[in-house]
Structures are given as structure tokens and as C-alpha cells.
Design a protein around this nucleic acid. Structure first.
Length: 578
RNA sequence: CGGGAUGUAGCGCAGUUGGCUAGCGUGCAUGGUUCGGGUCCAUGAGGCCGCGGGUUCGAGUCCCGCCAUCCCGACCA
């Protein structure tokens, strides 16, 4: 491509809307432009990269026997009612109507679409497993789109779905996917962390998230440096150090203590001069669907993981109760709730950390009053004990007991076993080898395509711009005619451009009649892996210069060596990435 | 949804305290100069000052309403 014919609008200044490196650089390098909040136009360079990423994903999917289809963006309401998600998905689902007032969703994910296809087209165990995928635009009305293409409302996702009659068959495909994902991210030049994410509510045995460590990431990962344990903080198990029970000696009788205006754990700590660990934090939660209330207990130095709590309770949604509900349950204003002598009987669920507590302090369900010397089992007995504790760095690793570390990450891929949720809801039945019918089970596997692009940039940039790995660079080589107005330079540039074309090296020829400095800056900004520099100076010595973006290294070569040396450089860059 | 901020030339910003011809940088056009890392000089084009209403002789500026965009948060009593 000649740059004089290309829409490649680079920006010298940082656009006002962008704050993170990938967003800033995608805008500055002329890859994307914003059309509205959470949706972006891909300009020629950006689109080329996207297609390369998609093709890498395609190759790896095809390699494991997955077949590509394309589902419509629109999904009829009826299909989503069949799975129960028309109501369950709530505000994230873009909904619209046609002129006949039929309702549709803009597809945010396609379990319904694929299950419907499957039930119409497949009948026999002989055809299993079935693995179907698509590369398509998805819509989610995100509560807050942000960071450019990192979290957008319209985005591109590769979503794959598999169907099986046996667990073994699903395990095999799931495992193939895991390996394919490793290969894909490696080829994209992304360093990912594989994070276990046991699907609590789903009860599935397998779920794996592929995270890219990044300080602006929206997920928090807890991981161990001693073993391979890594988990999303929402799901991380915890192993708590229990207090030294013997030191607490005998427990005394329950006793009221006046705590005027002292509500929070921090305030109690100061007021009673006791460590956080000696308090029982008591929170009232509400199920917004059913309206039912529970009291959740956790040790004062800890926080409740609401995801875990909701999972333990089997609730789809969870929210803290309001002041009126707190008053209703405890008979006291917020800040004085405790598990002993509740005004209204509600279910009490306690974290494992509470079980060993002796001489604990908690609210007395009476204004400005707390109880001291609370003993588990004597003064209160929870209806249920579960791990509802939020993990933190410094906690013990659940598998090897070493210290856990925390880091932020961006989820670029997710694979998990779905079970029969959709096939059951859709009444899918497949004949097995005894000619009886069985409900197939499914797996589901996603990759955020444009999010992966943003993640690659987050991981591969410097003060001059993006540093694309050659496999996904918009163009592999940039030809820089230092003085395009010079007829000899122009002629040699054109000759080299033609050689590269013939050798299947994607070249972007900067034939603009502008100062060389701008050409260098633009090529670097857009992350072109190598620059082939044609100048009068170099032509005089019969040498042409090749400069490597990533290292800044320069190699002088003869004209006829250009293609071979360039290819060798790509191979070196790819090796270095392994 | 709650909080904060911002909307002025393609892009980045000043101007709002103090009401009257709307500015700077960059980009763009023309001429010259320079020519291997965003040259320098000159000339020029380019504005519903987010939208609507109000106050006033007069509003980019003051008041009211709306819209859009960005950031933070979304309840740990």
C-alpha cells in the first residue's frame, strides 16, 4: 500500500477522551475513531490487525475440528424466553422492536442461537462432538463502557460452543480448547495467566479464564508464586489463620457494653481498644428477586465476598438491605446489628472465620449497645457455615499454603463447561447408541477479539508508540523514502516495494513528499516491525538500511538481500517472543 | 444509578473573575526555506463558543433546563 492512498490519520497530541496507553495509542496511530460511547470505527490499519487476529484464532479453532458459522445479530425474544434469559439478563441486553412490534435482542452471546441450530440439525450420537464457533459483533449495554475498546458496548468476540453426550467427550474438547487458547495467545504475542474459576452456581467442574496482567485491568487476580494456583478474587478460596484459642482461655458470660454512636469496625477498634479480629461483622443482605433477608457474619478483619455469598445462598442477585429492613430485622439502627437475639427470625449464614471465635464482640441489636463475650454455639448458632470470605494478598494459598499475591488483569478469554442448562431448556434430545434419547451437555468458549488487540498494545509499547509483533502488525514492513521528491530514491523505493510484494512481505510504502522525521514517527507510532530506509546517502554506498522497531537495531544490506533479511528478522522477533 | 469534571476551528487548549472586533498551538492551503527523527518564516482559509430557553441595550461569559463525553464509585453499617 502506498501511504499517499491510505487513510492513516495520526495524532501528535493525546486525545482528551483517552487515559490508558492502548486507547491513546489506538487513537493516535489512526487505528480507530469513536462514533459514540462504547462503539468505534475501525480505520484501515486497525481493521487489518483485527483480521489478522481473527485469522490466527480461526486457524487454531479449525485445527481442533471446530466449524465456523455466522449467527444473526438479532435474536427473537421467544428464543431468549425459552432459556429464561429474556428476564434474567436485565439491563445489559439491548432490546428493540420491529414495525410489527415483535421484540428482539441484539445478541450479547449466542447460547440460544446455537442450541436452536443444534436441535434442528443434529439427531445422533454418531455426530458428536459438535463444535461450532463464530467471529462476530456482540452487543452489551454495559453499565459503564470505558478504556476505549477494552470495555465497549459493541465488540467483537469469537464464541464457540460444543455439544456432547458424555462427560469424557466434553472433557476432551474442553482440554483441546485450553491448549488452542494457549497457542492463540502466544501467537498474538500476549502473555496470559491462566486462572481457575470454579463456576460456583453452575456446579460445573471446569472453568478457566485467560487473563492479561495489567494495572488498568478490571479484574483482580489472586495468585501464588510457589505453585500454579491463580484465581479470580471473586472466586478465590481462602485459608484463614485461626486465632489462638487457648490464649483466649475461658469464656465469660454474655455482657452488654455501651457504645454510643460507635458503629463501624474501625470505630469499635478505637473505642474498645480491641483488635479487629475480635469483632463479628454482621451484615443484612437482601435478595432483590424474592425480598428475603439474611444475616451474614464474618470476622471483623475480613470482608464478605458477595459473589460467594450469593452462590452459597443460591441467589442470582444480592444487595445490602436498607435502613428500614435492618431496623425490621434487628430492632436497631444500622451499626448495632449482631447475631444474638434478633428481633425478627432470619437465616444466619456465617463465614468459616467465625466458627472458632470466643469472647467476641458484636452488635446487641439495640441502639448504642454491643455485646461482649459472645461465644459461637452458646450465644448464637448460624443456620449455615460457608466460605464467604474475600481473599486478599497475603492470605495462605489454598493449595500450598504459601503467601498469595494480588494483581489486576484483563480477561481476554474464558472457557467453561456449561452442562445441560440450555439443551434441557430447549428440549434437545439426541439418540445414543442404545437408541434411547439423551440430553446433550455443552461447553462454551469465548475470546474478546478487539479486547485482545488492546491488551497486545498494553503489553507492547514504548514512548514512541506501539510495537506490534510481526504476525499481527498492520503491515510487516514500512518503506521510508527519505526524500520522495528525489527521482532516484523514488525509483529504488518503488523497486523495493515491488520486490517485497513479490516475496509476500506486506509493505507500507511511505511515498509522501514530506520530511523524513514525520515518516519515522508515524511508522513507529503504528508499530510497524521493520523500517526499510531509502536515502540518497545510503544509495551512494550501494546499501539499504533496515531498522528494527523493537530493538532500534540497524542492519545495512544489499538490495537483493532485502527480502531474505527482512524475513529473517521476523523469525528472530517471533522466536524472541516464545 | 450516585458523585466529579468537561463541551470554544479537524485535534489539543486559553478566554468566563471584568458584557461590546473570539484567541493560541498544531493541522490544512499558498509561497519561500530546510531536508535522516513531528524544520523555520510569511500569507491565508477555517467557528450555530454542545442544544434550548431566560435576563439584558448587549451573553462564549450571568440564570434555568436539556443533551453528549470522560473519570471515580455502586453501598462491608
Amino acid at each position: 500500500m502506498r501511504m499517499t492512498r491510505l487513510l492513516f490519520p495520526t495524532l501528535k497530541e493525546v486525545p482528551r477522551d483517552a487515559v490508558i496507553p492502548s486507547h491513546i495509542l489506538m487513537l493516535r496511530a489512526g487505528l480507530i475513531r469513536k462514533l459514540g460511547s462504547g462503539f468505534y470505527t475501525y480505520l484501515p490499519l486497525g481493521l487489518r490487525i483485527l483480521k489478522k487476529i481473527e485469522n490466527i484464532i480461526r486457524e487454531e479453532m479449525d485445527k481442533i475440528g471446530a466449524q465456523e458459522v455466522l449467527f444473526p445479530i438479532l435474536i427473537p425474544k421467544e428464543l431468549w424466553e425459552e432459556s429464561g434469559r429474556w428476564d434474567a439478563f436485565r439491563k445489559e441486553l439491548f432490546r428493540l422492536q420491529d414495525r410489527h412490534e415483535n421484540h428482539y435482542a441484539l445478541g450479547p452471546t449466542h447460547e440460544e442461537s446455537v442450541t436452536d441450530l443444534f436441535r434442528r440439525e443434529y439427531t445422533s450420537y454418531r455426530e458428536m462432538p459438535v463444535v461450532i464457533y463464530q467471529m462476530a459483533v456482540k452487543f452489551r449495554d454495559e453499565i459503564r463502557p470505558r478504556f476505549g475498546v477494552m470495555r465497549s458496548r459493541e465488540f467483537i468476540m469469537k464464541d464457540a460452543y460444543s455439544f456432547h453426550l458424555t462427560e469424557e467427550c466434553l472433557d476432551k474438547t474442553y482440554n483441546d480448547m485450553s491448549i488452542a487458547y494457549q497457542a492463540i495467545f502466544k501467537r498474538l504475542g500476549l502473555k496470559t495467566l491462566s486462572v481457575r474459576a470454579d463456576t460456583g452456581a453452575m456446579g460445573g467442574s471446569g472453568s478457566e479464564e485467560f487473563m492479561v496482567e495489567n494495572e488498568t485491568g478490571e479484574e483482580i487476580i489472586v495468585f501464588c508464586r510457589s505453585c500454579s494456583y491463580a484465581a479470580n478474587i471473586e472466586k478465590a478460596e481462602t485459608v484463614l489463620q485461626q486465632p489462638d484459642v487457648s490464649a483466649a482461655a475461658e469464656t465469660s458470660a454474655l455482657e452488654e457494653t455501651a457504645t454510643p454512636g460507635v458503629r463501624t469496625i474501625e470505630e469499635l477498634e478505637n473505642f474498645l481498644k480491641l483488635p479487629k479480629m475480635s469483632f463479628i461483622k454482621s451484615l443484612i443482605y437482601k435478595n432483590p428477586d424474592s425480598g428475603s433477608l439474611v444475616m451474614a457474619l464474618i470476622r471483623g478483619d475480613r470482608e464478605i465476598n458477595e459473589k460467594k455469598l450469593a452462590g452459597a445462598l443460591g441467589w442470582a442477585e444480592i444487595t445490602l438491605a436498607g435502613d428500614n429492613e435492618i431496623l425490621e430485622v434487628t430492632g436497631a439502627p444500622a451499626g448495632f446489628a449482631g447475631p444474638c437475639l434478633l428481633k425478627k427470625k432470619v437465616e444466619i449464614i456465617a463465614d468459616l472465620s467465625v466458627k472458632e471465635m470466643r469472647n467476641a464482640v458484636s452488635g446487641a441489636n439495640k441502639k448504642d449497645t454491643h455485646y461482649k463475650n459472645i461465644k459461637f454455639g452458646r450465644d448464637f448458632t448460624p443456620d449455615r457455615i460457608a466460605d464467604i470470605n474475600k481473599a486478599h494478598s497475603g492470605d495462605a494459598c489454598p493449595s500450598c499454603r504459601q503467601k498469595l499475591f494480588e494483581s489486576r488483569g484483563v480477561e481476554v478469554g474464558h472457557i467453561f463447561k456449561l452442562g445441560d442448562k440450555y439443551t434441557k431448556a430447549f428440549g434437545v434430545k439426541i439418540a445414543d447408541n442404545n437408541s434411547s434419547e439423551k440430553i446433550p451437555i455443552m461447553g462454551c468458549y469465548g475470546i474478546g477479539v478487539n479486547r485482545s488487540l488492546a491488551a497486545v498494545i498494553e503489553q507492547n509499547h514504548d514512548e514512541n508508540g506501539i510495537i506490534f509483533p510481526p504476525q499481527i502488525a498492520p503491515y510487516q514492513a514500512g518503506i521510508i523514502s527519505v526524500n520522495a521528491a528525489d527521482s532516484r530514491v523514488f525509483a529504488v523505493s518503488e523497486e523495493i516495494y515491488n520486490i517485497l510484494q513479490k516475496e509476500d512481505i506486506e509493505a507500507l510504502w511511505d511515498d509522501r513528499d514530506i520530511r523524513a522525521g514525520i515518516k519515522f514517527k508515524d511508522a513507529d507510532l503504528a508499530g510497524i516491525p521493520v523500517k526499510i530506509i531509502i536515502s540518497e546517502k545510503a544509495l551512494g554506498s550501494g546499501q539499504i538500511e533496515i531498522k528494527i522497531r523493537k530493538t532500534g537495531e540497524t542492519r545495512m544490506v544489499k538490495k537483493e538481500e532485502i527480502a531474505s533479511v527482512t524475513k529473517a528478522i521476523f523469525a528472530e522477533l517471533e522466536d524472541a517472543q516464545q
